[in-house]
Design a protein around this nucleic acid. Structure first.
Lengths: 230, 230
DNA sequence: GCAAAAGTGTTGCTTTTACACCCATGG
DNA sequence: CCATGGGTGTAAAAGCAACACTTTTGC
């Protein structure tokens, strides 16, 4: 690494003042409620025993995206769900131990996804209606994350990441209702979604319950698509 | 500053590896073209003589927002226009001098706004149609910024920050046309904007040109409002 | 009086909303 | 056979898109 430059030499002395972290607002639908993952604070001088978002430091050889994936694996025992960057929080006193700048992320996974390994951190899934007061500035991060999730639900296909690969139209509708926090009309919802051409019917049906079997659909594209949905 | 914690002690040795910077995509409408401010690279070992976004390092006692305001003042000679955080870029080799993590911002100002002081940097306003290849990852930052600007124009009142406080409906429409890159129908545009109730007519008119005087309007709220506009 | 931009309504089309009944299955 | 959720159409209302002429001013 070359450090010829005056600014960078100064930087190496004085301007590397901050530690970089990621904080992840990791959403899943649990028991028909939009929930997010909290971890217990065990290491800080402040906030011990309080709940906080999961996250951790960014390492010198990784990007913020990489750091999110790594910390999700270690602290939630989960392999790379959908993640997207939310906002960077840089208030000077957000962590009393020193200057920590946090790049916040939203992560999504479907309800069935099993944790592949044991998490190293004490965690719990908490419905968004009952989130306790969190450590650091995590209350604010959660607020921004929920706003963003609801907003993007209306113009992207990111709902797919809260669902298994194949799902019924009722499950898709339920996902929207849970995230947006309001009920929708079944016929209008189906008409709208089908007219968008973003999902394809499979030849399978979902059976096993005491009712008519439901057709299974899948999203045509795995990546989130920008399109007016609701 | 208290550093009792194991992580933070390690941090002070190894984890303060990065320098934090801000890069600003500063938009104005110049000669009826959406333009952004570029500065010439003078200090880096790479990219000397290339154009880049304006920006600079974040200082230990300021937030990212503060840093943006400071650098805009010094490098563009301008006092606090509208700014909003865009995205944080953390690729490992985005700056060859060392690890630099950049929090990118969008800034907006109206065409009339005069620079209050001399800029310390050689800068130019460049129409977005003719942007040269930029230093670092600034091409990508600009792409993301233009996407964001266009997208938010359709559902917020941020257009107000590209206009003077009082403006005619034609000027507002022109602003939309320039940013969105397409023409709009005058009657439909006026009907829509007026029906939203976000602007109020003043008692003044804009005179001096060889045509009928135009009524001047102003936005009712100074802060960006979320509302379906187009 | 003419050039230039301001200002103004109507119609057809598309989209959205509201709403109720029959169907296929498991138990 | 009954309880459960799956699946379907229509009509009224609202919103959107297309379109042309008159008004007021400066020169």
């Amino acid at each position: 690494m070359i450090l010829k430059n005056k600014d960078m030499v100064r930087a190496s002395e004085k301007l590397r003042f901050a530690v970089l972290a990621v904080d992840v607002v990791y959403f899943r639908i649990i028991d028909n409620k939009l929930s997010l993952l909290l971890g217990k604070v065990t290491t800080a001088p402040d906030f011990i025993g309080k709940w906080a978002l999961i996250g951790g430091l960014i390492a010198p050889d990784e990007t913020a995206d990489d750091a999110v994936k790594r910390h999700l694996k270690v602290k939630a025992g989960i392999e790379v769900p959908y993640t997207e960057q939310l906002y960077t929080f840089s208030a000077i006193n957000r962590d009393r131990r020193g200057r920590v700048i946090s790049v916040a992320y939203v992560a999504l996974a479907n309800s069935n996804l099993q944790n592949k390994q044991k998490a190293e951190t004490e965690t719990k899934w908490c419905p968004i209606a009952g989130i306790p007061s969190l450590a650091y500035d995590h209350d604010e991060i959660v607020r921004v994350a929920i706003d963003r999730l609801r907003s993007k639900f209306t113009y992207t296909t990111m709902a797919q990441f809260l669902l298994p690969e194949e799902f019924t139209l009722s499950e898709l509708q339920k996902t929207y209702e849970i995230v947006m926090g309001k009920e929708m009309d079944k016929r209008n919802f189906r008409k709208k979604i089908l007219s968008l051409g973003i999902i394809a019917i499979t030849k399978k049906v979902k059976i096993g319950k005491a009712n008519r079997p439901a057709a299974l659909y899948r999203f045509k594209k795995r990546s989130p698509l920008f399109i007016d949905i609701l």
